[in-house]
Design a protein around this nucleic acid. Structure first.
Lengths: 89, 89
DNA sequence: CTCATAATTAGATAATCATCTAATTAGAGT
DNA sequence: ACTCTAATTAGATGATTATCTAATTATGAG
């Protein structure tokens, strides 16, 4: 787990909102995009950063890509900061 | 508490490291700066961001500025993300 | 009041980030 | 094979960020 990548990903409000939306369950890229006033390509970039951080996982269902929340990485990163370690570069 | 400011502040490795250092107790700006390979003005900017986020508080002792960790804001922000709310703009 | 020390603010610059439009890939149905 | 839909990647641009050097403020000591 690249802790820096995780916190980078968490630093943008849109990306945190995406995580919040995914708490209610998996959602397609398009459905997620519908919640924002941004273009799909822009959202796609945000999805990528969340995926790089492993905060979400993606699965294909037909022509759609379904995003899932990966709660455990979130917990690891945050408790890492509250606890002792934060192996910064 | 501006949640966005808090996560912005947490997004930089140096700033997270500063928080980690402060877990052992309050420390002056100069002492903190000694732990990094960066100039004091650069560190000063980082201190400001942490202070804006209220993640640290500052107190003057003679010519020195002593920084204190504000653990509660950290806990609030992180548990806010794990829990329900994250009122993103 | 002047000097030395601690730390900041100011200004400049290079790098990174968020966003858009246009073009491309991938899958499903006809 | 062609077309439609979903979503991505590519390329460009404007805004923000991290960093440095130089100058400034604030405090305490002589």
């Amino acid at each position: 787990m690249r802790i820096n990548t995780v916190f980078e990903a968490l630093s943008h409000p849109v990306r945190r909102q995406i995580l919040t939306l995914l708490k209610s369950g998996p959602m397609s890229a398009g459905e997620l995009a519908g919640h924002f006033d941004l273009t799909k390509p822009t959202l796609s970039v945000h999805f990528n950063k969340l995926r790089d951080a492993e905060l979400v996982a993606v699965e294909r269902r037909g022509t759609s890509l379904i995003y899932h929340l990966n709660m455990s990485i979130l917990e690891e990163a945050l408790s890492g900061l509250l606890g002792k370690k934060d192996q910064t570069p």
